[in-house]
Design a protein around this nucleic acid. Sequence first.
DNA 1: TCCTAAGCGAGACGGTACGTCTTGTCTTCCA
DNA 2: TGGAAGACAAGACGTACCGTCTCGCTTAGGA
Lengths: 210, 210, 210, 210
Amino acid sequence: MSRNKQIGAGGRKAVDGTREDRRIQRTRQALHQALITLVLEKGYEAVSITDIVERANVGRSTFYAHYPSKEDLLTAEMTELRALLTARQRAALARTGTIAERSLGFSLAFFEHAQDYRDIYRALVGERGAAIMINRIRTLLTELVRQDLAEIIPATGKQQVPRAALVQFVVGALMSMLTWWLDHKSNLRPAEVDTIFRRLVTAAITGALE
Amino acid sequence: MSRNKQIGAGGRKAVDGTREDRRIQRTRQALHQALITLVLEKGYEAVSITDIVERANVGRSTFYAHYPSKEDLLTAEMTELRALLTARQRAALARTGTIAERSLGFSLAFFEHAQDYRDIYRALVGERGAAIMINRIRTLLTELVRQDLAEIIPATGKQQVPRAALVQFVVGALMSMLTWWLDHKSNLRPAEVDTIFRRLVTAAITGALE
Amino acid sequence: MSRNKQIGAGGRKAVDGTREDRRIQRTRQALHQALITLVLEKGYEAVSITDIVERANVGRSTFYAHYPSKEDLLTAEMTELRALLTARQRAALARTGTIAERSLGFSLAFFEHAQDYRDIYRALVGERGAAIMINRIRTLLTELVRQDLAEIIPATGKQQVPRAALVQFVVGALMSMLTWWLDHKSNLRPAEVDTIFRRLVTAAITGALE
Amino acid sequence: MSRNKQIGAGGRKAVDGTREDRRIQRTRQALHQALITLVLEKGYEAVSITDIVERANVGRSTFYAHYPSKEDLLTAEMTELRALLTARQRAALARTGTIAERSLGFSLAFFEHAQDYRDIYRALVGERGAAIMINRIRTLLTELVRQDLAEIIPATGKQQVPRAALVQFVVGALMSMLTWWLDHKSNLRPAEVDTIFRRLVTAAITGALE
DNA sequence: TCCTAAGCGAGACGGTACGTCTTGTCTTCCA
DNA sequence: TGGAAGACAAGACGTACCGTCTCGCTTAGGA
């Protein structure tokens, strides 16, 4: 009896992967645009689905035909960020050089991305951001950091600082730098924030491994 | 427009500060108890005010007579924690010894407190915790860390790492260790977690000041 | 977990049966008024609950706190009619006289009631009426007719015309006369319609019993 | 405003009568089949157009291309019944014999038709039937009865019982017998039901004309 | 000891948003 | 080019909470 059809799933010509119905893309675009505008206006939590569909000039059920919830509409955009960061990480790890040079190669790209979408980042990730978005980004970063450390630091049995703790610590540092930068220091360039981040974290990691 | 009378504010005998109406305390106690039980049962976000008043056997309006919102009921308890941590901090700063010995003297007390109320902490502060509570604790820690660093590290004009960034970094480290510990490593003792935390942070701070 | 509280059920002072909360009565009155006005404006089926609560200046959930559905709001009024007809029936049966004089003693009262609320009857019961209302009235009449025939015509084993068929026939005649009268012959007086009804039905019943 | 093109109306090749697009008939057949199956499963009111097109494996707009509404899909089938009853009526009126023998000559055919499609009749016409279908059948019967009475009973100015009232009465009797039979007495044969019907109605009509 | 006002339970209420469902229209593809 | 497929705007549904409110009961001080 499950009437939960997801639009476009078995779509016209979806076979070859290209040429999704033009209308579908237009509707999704309108929804994303509406969400972002509204988030900037009144903050993520305060935006209701009713708000979104009214702003996007879209029927209520159309929203649910495309996304199961407000969260999914939002995080659908994160795929792009994930791909970007993963690529940077791979490139850095493939390089030759010191550990510091090869590790956490995605951090600069991360701060640059935040710079490019500064307003929306501030609304979603900053001090008073959307919990769901912060968690999503945290999860993404956690994966990246875990892989990175696994490559860089060979597992040597018992460690002073457990691997998982170190991962959390680095992720926390990334998020801390981000929110600090978004909330207070808009004039710093991404590269400068990244430098600060790396200085703090490199020292900590080195210290942890002694 | 201000019809919002807060019970007990101009209460009977409130003059001398003692002897607040016994009933008032009983009602508040019932509300707190209900909230905590419910949070443990289904998580903070899922608990509605309707739930709370039903569980506490209290009239709906009685709730609003005491607290303006669910958040306020919750954070009312944080006063105790704040006092505890501040005291520890003061004691540590008053000591003689190395910087590492004197600084962040409240961190162990913080982890111990989390240990004592482990279940409720996990529900409110852990990976899937209540955003509002995490922010409240963050704010409290931020104050403490800021004071600490101001005492320990004399302001020397331009720094490699801005003071505010360092504060955020340390707070982030505290929270990261906490959620990591709550979510994964229940068997570690508070002192052990604290040791890890200090090892990581001390190295970073030292590195930042070079 | 059933949160389906029906307002007024355990109401204040409801113990003694009187003195139901004044507000409750006002709200219900507003809902009834709104429903009737709207039915006259656009027909029963076309009236949505949204329409009703907007017209009545009442919150949506308030509606559901009082009535489970549009149907129940409507048929709540039928209690009055039922009482009226039952009383008339009893009085007629208690009389002495011919079978024709004693039987179906409620029919005139039924047509008079329709006269008194002619507009709403036409909207609900006439040719294009509300199926639910027609069924409700049918059910009420069926009960009355069944009792009547049981009193008047003693059960004598096998009949030419089964008792139940006769009941349905009489009820059908009542409804037919009603809709015919409502839709076409507004100028006839209730007593005249009743005379026609009785002439037709008495002959049929007598014929059926030979 | 009239963009509502009705498929097949000015159909391809309709000129020569043959080679009507085969698909159209197949589509309509599928829709009818789906409707009937669904009505038997969950009752007429509960069947949505969405249900029908899904069951018929047909696009939504295809439905509207063929029928303007659920009602029209349903009543399209009634043409057959109308023709049948009209033929019977004509045959009976053409006979010689008593009034009772010549009048209402379609009634037996009506009950027989109900017998042949008992399940679908019960679902559509019985106690809890589809209001629209009951009305459609009522209308059909009203026409037939009106013509019949006009033939049988010559207009003699003022009558005790108005002609129109008598028509409604007879139609009501037919429907009452039908629903009674469908809902309770499945074992009676059509001829027996017809006998009961005629016994009741003949007596009434005779009585009305005295 | 009575009186009085605060605390309180109970819960009715107007609102708002939810996620689901159905309708009739409109656009697009394909044979 | 006609017929089918299905995306869409519109809006009602019944439910869940919210924060405000009114109503009497109770209860413990001060008169």
